[in-house]
């Protein structure tokens, strides 16, 4: 199947007073058209930086970027921010974690939503407004007409995130970047928003990159998963395969640390001790070695290569769980 997005050997670094901070260290990600890719990792693992670099949103004299990003057949990795803009809206769109800061607080929902329709699709104002109301209906906001006249501050967090989603899908993008879209929301609303995204993806034939720190979120809403750690891909597989046979100790530890309702109460929760390594000063060896329960001498000396099993399951570990596939 053709890939809508193909990232090859992407590296992103930032010059800082303490030296070069390597946020993304050679990442390959393929998103097949109309499929959903989950990007999972802790804060600081490089997942947001990777997405922003892929969209050409990182600018500044301190950014060091290399590698190839092919979107819908076009190489966009070397384009600057102004040139990559032509792909926004109709090609790709993004939704963010905090739906309040993604909306302008002093403009009504209607005018914000109609803006991209007028600019991108060349609609007149009247049509754009009618389409904006339709879009609000599409994201299941009750009473779209009344909502068009409201300001973001008059809506709850969940409703604001629906508005942001409506804005993102307004020009029918082929790929939606969703960066922690439900982290700021209640569990009940999270379930609704994830379901909405899955339904929209199916109806609009749209691919999605779902960035999250929670494996529980990707389990039911993605086709593929990429696990990032310290800027490296440490495991990559179709979602079902990944959950059926995790190879990377880090992925297993992430899964175990999710609070679950079927865990006994009163006991201690399984956790990952320690923290991510310092990105300005990577130590030799596997970046997860200091926190890994199965660590051996070799892991502290060499970075394991990404092993790709015949079934496509990729992992970066000398001693994978259950042995090499």
């Amino acid at each position: 199947m053709n890939s809508i997005l193909s990232i090859k050997n992407l590296e992103v670094g930032f010059d800082t007073p303490r030296g070069l901070l390597q946020a993304v260290r050679g990442v390959d990600v393929e998103v097949p058209g109309a499929s959903s890719m989950g990007i999972v990792g802790e804060s600081g693992s490089g997942k947001t930086v990777m997405c922003r670099a892929a969209m050409g949103l990182l600018r500044g004299s301190n950014v060091r970027r290399s590698g190839s990003v092919v979107f819908d057949g076009d190489e966009i990795g070397s384009l600057d921010s102004a040139d990559v803009r032509q792909y926004f809206g109709t090609g790709m769109a993004m939704i963010f974690q905090d739906p309040m800061t993604a909306l302008n607080p002093v403009r009504r929902i209607g005018s914000q939503l109609a803006e991209s329709l007028v600019i991108r699709l060349g609609m007149n104002k009247k049509d754009a407004r009618a389409r904006a109301a339709e879009l609000l209906g599409l994201v299941r906001i009750p009473d779209p007409e009344a909502t068009l006249r409201k300001f973001p501050g008059q809506l709850s967090g969940g409703m604001r995130q629906r508005v942001v989603i409506a804005t993102a899908i307004a020009c029918k993008p082929k790929l939606l970047f969703a960066d922690e879209p439900t982290t700021a929301l209640d569990v009940t609303v999270q379930a609704q928003i994830l379901e909405l995204l899955s339904d929209l993806r199916r109806d609009l034939d749209m691919a999605m990159m779902l960035v999250t720190h929670d494996l529980g979120v990707v389990a039911n809403h993605t086709d593929y998963v990429t696990v990032l750690y310290a800027g490296l891909v440490v495991e990559q597989a179709p979602t079902r395969k990944l959950f059926a046979s995790m190879k990377m100790p880090y992925t297993e530890a992430l899964l175990k640390s999710i609070p679950r309702l079927d865990q006994p109460s009163g006991g201690r929760m399984p956790m990952i001790g320690g923290r991510l390594p310092d990105p300005t000063n990577p130590e030799p060896g596997c970046p997860f070695a200091p926190r890994c329960p199965y660590v051996q001498d070799r892991c502290r000396k060499e970075v394991p290569p990404l092993t790709v099993a015949p079934d496509g399951h990729a992992y970066r570990c000398f001693y994978p769980i259950g042995g090499n596939a």
Partner: peptide, 24 residues
């Protein structure tokens, strides 16, 4: 019951239930 049903299950083979509760 709805709150219990809203917690995402980290298991893709579990039957996918619709959101346990609608609206706010």
């Amino acid at each position: 019951h709805a709150l219990v049903g809203s917690v995402p299950l980290p298991d893709p083979s579990a039957p996918r239930a619709r959101a346990a509760i609608q609206g706010e």
